[in-house]
Amino acid sequence: MIGSTSNKQVKRVVNLRAKAKARREENCYVAEGLRMCRELSPDQVEMLYVTEEFGSVPGNRRWLAGFPHETVSDVVMNYMADTKTPQGVLAVVKQRHYRLEELLPQAGKQALKTSAPSGKNPPAPACLMILETLQDPGNLGTILRAGEGAGITGLVMNRDTADIYNPKVIRSTMGSILRVPFVYVDDLSAALAQIKSAGVRLFAAHLKGTNNYDQEDYTGNIGFLIGNEAAGLTEEAAAMADCYIKIPMAGQVESLNAAVASSVLMFEAARQRRNSSQR
């Protein structure tokens, strides 16, 4: 059992939890809690850390048999965990990496294994969320989780967007980070040009939008552009959009939280696609 917070493994976990640079350099991140850890496969996990109490439960013990794991004291678990009341299990997980080409319509069918067998319905059209410099980890995690629920096919972010492997993001995705492909791009304008050349129509949630969001057609290959919480989209990114849209507001509300606005748009796209498939 690891009982000291000075242990090298413990220090490494704390470093991975606290520093994005460490996560990038080691190509790993920290995931906490039974629900999240239970979704991990052995090939994704570098090491599981559990308390003695957690490991003593028969069901947990059987599950742990398939993973590399270490037992730590309650004090050490509290020291390593980002949450105030850890559930007794924490994982160091290998990061996943995608290429932008895998998220685009022509490549994504094979790369993401969404192609349909002969005689079956074809893959759904692309529905991408494209984020520019979102800073709040909670917003990012919520967009990813809501996006899975709405059926998005991928998430594209510039490098100034919050680290998707931040512990707060990981917790708020509730496992969606394991199922929704995502990519960071060095040059957002170049990436948008590549996305458009693949036949994806881009919609920008923008104050200059003339049409309400529910007046547009989202049944084809589409992408939604969402900007920074305070500043919105840069002029350069907004100029790449094919259409500006707005979410009409009642009362004195001027705008919505980025995650809420994203959810409104994603679920409108999902609604339209359901209706279209039923015709």
Rank of each mutant, 00 (worst) to 15 (best):
E229Y: 05
A241W: 00
T219P: 11
K246V: 01
R201N: 09
T210I: 11
K196Q: 14
I195R: 11
D186Y: 08
V183H: 10
A198L: 09
G227A: 07
G227C: 08
I195N: 13
A190T: 15
C243E: 09
A193T: 15
N212G: 06
S255A: 03
T210A: 14
G209A: 12
A237W: 07
A238W: 05
L202D: 08
I245Y: 00
R201Q: 13
G199V: 04
L188P: 11
D242W: 00
P248N: 02
N228W: 08
Y184V: 07
Q194F: 01
V185L: 04
D187S: 13
A231P: 10
V185R: 06
K246F: 02
N221M: 00
F182C: 11
T173H: 03
A205K: 04
A250W: 01
N228H: 11
E235D: 15
N221D: 11
G223W: 00
G232V: 07
L202S: 08
T173W: 07
T210S: 15
Y184T: 09
N221P: 03
A237E: 13
N212E: 11
D187V: 10
E254V: 05
F203R: 12
Y184K: 14
T219D: 08
G227S: 12
M240I: 00
A198F: 01
A204Q: 04
G251Q: 06
G175Q: 14
E235G: 09
